[in-house]
Design a protein around this nucleic acid. Sequence first.
DNA 1: GCCAACGTTGGC
DNA 2: GCCAACGTTGGC
Length: 153
Amino acid sequence: MYWLMKSEPDEVSIDDVLTMPDRSVEWFGVRNYQARNFMRDQMQVGDGVLFYHSGCAEPGVAGLAEVSRTALPDETQFDAASPYHDPKATRDNPRWFCVRVRALQKTPLLPLSIMRKVPLLQEMRLLARGNRLSITPVTVDEWSCIKTLLQAS
DNA sequence: GCCAACGTTGGC
DNA sequence: GCCAACGTTGGC
């Protein structure tokens, strides 16, 4: 399957991940049940990932990545010092899970503003009115379209 | 900084 | 189970 995963570049950018060991990072900090369920129940090793920068001056797809490990409990939920701490989570009954994501390459930025204008992308979950999900599925057609756009730029 | 949209919480 | 209040997301 294919996914789009949002990250704030001030927190973890595509450049950051490319400098990490194995060029990969735990996708910690997701605290939304729908996004959690995608990671826990559906994401498989090898799934394609559009690495999206959000909450920044120019939001958009900034790189290509892949799922490199299926979901495990998100350690930050147990860490009282973490902003992602969840007092209701226990080791025996974890609430939050995260996959590991390996960056493959940085790409020229494909801005959200451009994606909104591409006819083939109009049905993207990302573009749906009021969408706030930080992880959204991407269809095969959308994936192909975006890869073409990235190569063209 | 604003604010629309949505998710979660908690009283009832 | 309802729903008002509140908090968060995230583009602009």
